[in-house]
Amino acid sequence: MLADLFTGSVLIGLLASGIRLATPYLYAAIGETFGQRSGVLNLGVDGIMLMGAFSAFYVVFKTGDLVGGVLLAMLVGLLMGLAMAFISVTLNAEQGISGIGVYLFGLGMSDLLFQKLINNVQTVSGFPVAPIPFLSEIPVIGQIFFTHNVLVYGAYLLVPIAWFVLNKTTLGLKIKAVGENPEAADTLGVSVAKIRYLTVSMGGLLSGVAGASLSIALLNVFQFNLTNGLGFIAIALVYFGGWRPTWVLMGSLIFSFVNALQIWVQVVGIPIPSDIAVMTPYILTIVVLVISAQRVRPPSALSKTYERLE
């Protein structure tokens, strides 16, 4: 049976599965990385994802317009991000707790809208698989990396972009400055509020896309609590990645591959209780972090409110 597990086609399927599974985590975690780098912890990601997932699904269900679906998910995510920014930056509210509030609101509101506007569980035709010309024809690699839908590619493109913005632009410098030492950044003329508004609302927008990637690209369905706590795992992955986009990518991939693997283990009939199989990705994520023994410090001002002295 173990031999079954490591035949070529199986391995390819497994890796492709991991790549796909990581998509929503990536959108949400990269978005959250920006927010946290600027000092704002947004625990409401899962709620924003649910609102994004519903909005996108609604548009596609009513009109079939996939791009429109993503755009509305972005807009709704952006608005919820702005609300979170208003709460945590302008009103200086405790961040962890307001995030839980935003999560609960999104969890309830998305289901309420679903019940009132659609009512029954339905499927839609989401983003089709779009093999990338040439690249997808490369044996093995093509099947693993280049035979997915557009939103999957988008998630991976986001990683270098995020890396570039954080490390090679003035904006990135400002974001990090605001997250490390808001007083100093303020003295240097960087508006702490403006930067935080920007990062948190962008994080919201990306969480919206993360939701859309579930409802109109990967699952093509909407249901109460579709994300099932996925947004919280995404936040954990931000910590796992030590607030660096490339490491967030690594974390998302490890977590997703192990998740794909545990499904395989069950499918090929290796006799492990299903509960133990299901918990392995979570245990492994912790173990990997222990072994890699990272010494990354969180942004100094993370989850601390900043009030200008007037």
Binding site: L91, N92, A93, G101, L104, G108
Partner: peptide
């Protein structure tokens, strides 16, 4: 679902009122 959303609003409002 309304109850869940309402709880979320209460949490957000109470924590925001701290200002």
């Amino acid at each position: 679902a309304l109850i869940t959303a309402l709880n979320g609003l209460v949490v957000v409002f109470v924590v925001s009122s701290e200002i």
